[in-house]
Design a protein around this nucleic acid. Structure first.
Length: 925
RNA sequence: GGCCCGGUGGCGGAAUGGUAGACGCAGCGGAUUCAAAAUCCGCCGCUGGUAACAGUGUGCGAGUUCAAGUCUCGCCCGGGCCACCA
């Protein structure tokens, strides 16, 4: 007989829900611990077996921490605004709210079947107006803030106004789009419109003409992280560059803090590295190159000021404002033609044509700041308008791109750093001595950079400068299904709603498409204006808006007066453990860190970094099966072992009609009408004809017919078995394929464990006898191993430890309460229903959740001594295993006690004695 | 092109620098059974050998070490991220 998981799991799930077993209060008598899963976007397809992986791991850790005496916050909710529901609405006319609610229901029922210990009283979805009220509220705060570069934090925009009213733009130390110069008198004469326009230059949430990634197919702009290879991440539609008036968040002013913060948090090195690359800090200098014969010129940014004597031409980005200013009459038509060509190139073409060199001469020259030589000014699309100053000094000898350009247009190449062979390729390495470089000659690159910057600053040609690749975040989306901006326009001037007017709820529209005049869908809403008739903003916020502060909201999710109360946030502080996929590295995980830092500056968040420790669970891949159809006879299918003898076509087959790679041929004929008349060429196995399928590890997806639904697994094996198996599959952070076969192993384990408590007739049978030494060793070894494994998030090996324990106790025929009771507590985080049932049968009326974690006792684990000789490398070595706390003296005594054995082994004296700390003495004889 | 991560049986994977392959799946053999399911026991990297055993073995090549899957260097392969960022 085996245990009845269906009854047991339903029973305890109901019990937990009814008794609110996992409700968390702000109980300050206990230490807090906050475990958070990245909340899901509820898609229509529901969960597959890969989705719960992280939720299972976080639930295990949560339950473990609770048994360690922590008050654990472990909430769940839904990231509910987003494109798929809106796309579906466009196709079917169903309101996205309806689709979203249906999907959430499916998700919730799937989650409930797995026995998670979430505090569901804190649940919310981001499309609730009671939730997005606070997203709007933060936006208003950003609008009313600017970034003080001296204090290095966000402060009220009033500081800018006060400064300007006192002394104009002089000495302004606030992050801005561009340096403006005006006096306080001029400011006083500005119109209201002009004043607001000026302030937008400093606000953290600002409206600006921005070059954007416009996706015509989706009808919206996209953030940089939503575009890949010139195509939209969602739907893979082409994306083009456009200039549009958009809301932006001044993310860039937090670049350094976002970078520095990475050193303080316990995240995987790979995610930190991705974020460092994305922020893209580079140190260098900004240098002024004057136009020939003039006193004005343009600035360039370079990380290699040491190579300044190797400059042989300048390159402007096609978008640069200097293009028009410098182009000579003779070159005008050539330049115009080139600019026209650049415009026609889509973003995608520009990226795929990276290797193609293109450019045009402007006819103008700069004067070299040190040598005074003439330097021609070119235009090239390999220089980007949005980075640095949109202009570069080209040093072809030491930059691959400049080298290609110089070769293509036959421009001079001057070596200034020795060490390479510049006749074949550029020498980009930052190693070698400077040559042909006047005052820099003979210096190593690193020193030369310092000296060059010093000279540039001394001669007032430029300044040391740090540039970041991180740009401000474009915050407008021309979509329906998102948070409305709390903004209205009076005479074209954007104004914020008052806090008392929030939330501004999403209006109804007659269709989810742009209007005929090309306005966003909100342009269709009736009465989309305030009581004075001032129009509301037509864009909505992007997907990341709602997920940027949700971790704070869980601390106090029912609060309708504040985002989060002071008490709640000062108790819960930050997320101790955050689990989710690594695909959010450059999106959500940057935005939410930024958002949190802003709230920290405001004094709302109490921690500068929101997520102390981050774990990225790996993907569970699908294991696909294939059948092989003959190309010349489409009704014949050949078994994989014989397929090489035929000309075949590989077809995916539903993994649910394949077992152990053997195809159920009857089921196959019924699977699809086109296979009804299928015939098979079998291979032999055990004297039987079988059809064996090929297999491959691929992404789990419908089109590969390899999706495994957790509901079916739970039905067949139970939630506890699924939980254990998902953990057993392999290391949490690694991608690994799902293989339904293997689940039998953990299922057998649970039954074996069950049988330790019950006799063959399913009768409860436990003894109160004193445990033996061997039994105690198994118990304490398991407690210790599982404890260490959980702390290291090595759940696969802890499941293995349980299996070993069950096997050994089975062999010892151990049914002693003193051994089994603590083991149930250790198993509870992994198999909660199973453990709760046994705990109940053991006579406890309280939930096992309240049971403290058993402590292992080392004394049951220490071996007296264990030794073995080994011969290798032509020498005999003798190993003695010693206890963990032995000191050198104890080791010496131990060796002495083995002297006779050693002599017996080889008859030679001891040559060398090596004491390896902790465990082993290695004696060479 | 740059950076990051990985490469161990038929498969998923174990292994604080110390007997490589824990644990599970699959496979093979056996017990129990009228039979099956369930359960239990044994074998299970490769080569040779009936066996004891010997040799070999963690992508490849070197190095450090008494000792390397593990540390260092150089290559090869796979995956990820960024990608004309000056």
């Amino acid at each position: 007989m085996s245990y009845n998981f269906q009854d047991i799991e339903t029973k305890w799930q109901k019990h937990w829900a009814k008794n609110k077993t996992f409700k968390t209060t702000n109980d300050t008598s206990k230490p807090k611990y906050y475990v958070l899963d990245m909340f899901p976007y509820p898609s229509g397809a529901g969960l597959h077996v890969g989705h719960p992986l992280g939720y299972i791991a976080s639930d295990i850790y949560t339950r473990y921490k609770r048994s360690q005496g922590f008050n654990v916050l472990h909430p769940m909710g839904y990231d509910a605004f987003g494109l798929p529901a809106e796309q579906y609405a466009i196709q079917t006319g169903t309101h996205p709210a309806i689709t979203t609610d249906q999907n959430i229901k499916t998700y919730r029922s799937q989650l409930d079947k797995l026995g998670f210990s979430y505090d569901w009283d804190r649940e919310f979805k981001t499309c609730d107006s009671s939730y997005y009220k606070w997203t709007q509220w933060v936006f208003i705060k950003m609008f009313e803030s600017c970034y003080d570069l001296k204090a290095d934090k966000a402060v009220s925009i009033d500081n800018v106004v006060k400064h300007i009213e006192a002394q104009g733009s002089k000495g302004l130390h606030f992050a801005c789009n561009e340096e403006l110069v005006f006096s306080k008198e001029e400011w006083n004469s500005f119109s209201e419109e002009k004043r607001e326009e000026t302030l937008q230059n400093y606000r953290l949430a600002y409206l600006a003409d921005t070059p954007v990634n416009w996706c015509p197919a989706l009808g919206t702009v996209l953030a940089n992280d939503e575009v890949k290879d010139g195509l939209s991440v969602r739907g893979a539609h082409p994306v083009e560059q456009r200039i549009m008036k958009q809301w932006n968040l001044r993310l860039s002013c937090y670049a350094q803090r976002l970078l520095d913060g990475l050193d303080k948090i316990d995240w995987s090195e790979s995610i930190k590295e991705i974020q460092r690359n994305w922020i893209g800090r580079s140190e260098g200098a900004e240098v002024l190159f004057k136009l020939k014969g003039q006193d004005t010129g343009f600035e360039i940014f370079t990380t290699r000021p040491d190579t300044i004597f190797g400059v042989s031409f300048m390159v402007l980005a096609p978008e640069s404002e200097w293009v028009q200013k410098v182009t000579t009459k003779e070159q005008t038509s050539a330049v115009e033609n080139y600019l026209e060509d650049c415009k026609k190139k889509s973003q995608r073409e520009r990226m795929t044509d990276v290797k193609k060199v293109s450019g045009v001469f402007t006819g103008a020259y700069c004067t070299h700041p040190f040598s005074g030589k003439d330097i021609p000014i070119w235009i090239g699309d390999y220089v980007l308008g949005g980075y640095g100053t949109g202009a570069i000094m080209a040093v072809p000898a030491h930059d691959t791109r400049d080298y290609a350009f110089a070769k293509h247009f036959n421009l001079p190449i001057t070596e200034v750093v020795s060490g390479g062979d510049i006749s074949k390729e550029s020498y980009d390495a930052k190693e070698g001595k400077l040559v042909n470089s006047d005052f820099l000659n003979g210096l190593e690159v690193k020193e030369a950079i310092k000296k060059a910057i010093a000279q540039i600053e001394e001669k007032k040609l430029g300044v040391k400068k740090i540039n970041y690749r991180l740009r401000d975040a474009i915050f407008s989306r021309q979509r329906y299904w998102g948070e409305p901006f709390p903004v209205y326009y009076k005479n074209g001037i954007p104004k914020m709603l008052k806090e008392s007017e929030l939330p501004l709820e999403l209006p109804e529209v007659d269709a989810y498409l742009p209007t005929e005049t090309g306005e966003p869908p909100l342009g269709r809403a009736r009465n989309w204006h305030n009581k004075d008739g001032d129009a509301y903003e037509l864009s909505t916020m992007p997907g990341f808006a709602g997920s940027s502060a949700y971790f704070l909201r869980y601390m106090d999710s029912q609060n309708n007066k504040e985002l989060v109360s002071k008490e709640a946030v000062s108790y819960w502080q930050d997320v101790d453990l955050y689990l989710g996929g690594s695909e959010h590295a450059t999106g959500h995980l940057i935005y939410s860190r930024f958002w949190n830092k802003f709230l920290f500056d405001l004094g709302i968040a109490v921690k500068d970094e929101p997520f102390k420790k981050l774990i990225n669970q790996g993907m569970i891949q699908g294991r696909s099966n294939f059948v092989y159809r003959l190309k010349n006879d489409v009704n014949k299918f050949v078994s994989v072992g014989l397929k090489d003898k035929y000309d075949t076509q590989e077809l995916h087959v539903d993994v649910n009609i394949v077992e152990n790679d053997i195809l159920d041929t009857q089921a196959f004929k019924k699977w699809r009408a086109e296979f009804a008349k299928a015939e098979f060429i079998f291979e032999q196995a055990d004297g039987k004809d079988v059809y064996r399928c090929g297999w491959a590890v691929e992404k789990m997806s419908k089109s590969m017919f390899n999706v495994v639904n957790p509901d079916l697994v739970v039905e067949k094996y139970g939630a506890d078995t699924l939980r254990l198996y998902e953990m057993f599959l392999g290391p949490l952070e690694q991608s690994k394929p799902w293989n339904t076969q293997g689940i039998e192993g953990v299922s057998r384990f649970l039954n074996k464990f069950w049988r330790l408590f019950h006799n063959d007739n399913e009768q409860w049978e436990l003894s109160n006898a004193e445990p033996s030494k061997d039994e105690l060793k198994v118990l304490h070894g398991t407690i210790k191993k599982v404890h260490e494994d959980i702390e290291n998030f090595s759940f696969n090996t802890s499941v293995a430890a349980f299996m070993i324990a069950a096997n050994e106790l089975g062999k010892l025929k151990c049914n002693k309460k003193a051994i089994l009771e603590p083991l149930v507590v250790v198993l509870a985080p992994f198999a909660p229903h199973f453990a709760e049932e046994l705990w109940n049968q053991l006579g406890h009326s309280e939930s096992i959740t309240t049971a403290p974690w058993p402590v292992h006792e080392e004394k049951y684990l220490v071996e007296s001594s264990y030794n073995y000789p080994i011969s290798f490398n032509g020498k005999t070595r003798f190993f003695i295993e010693i206890s963990l706390d032995a000191d050198a003296k104890a080791v010496e005594e131990l060796v002495k006690s083995h002297e006779e054995t050693i002599k017996y082994l080889d008859g030679k004296p001891i040559k060398k004695l090596i004491f390896v700390p902790k465990r082993i003495v290695n004696i060479v004889i």
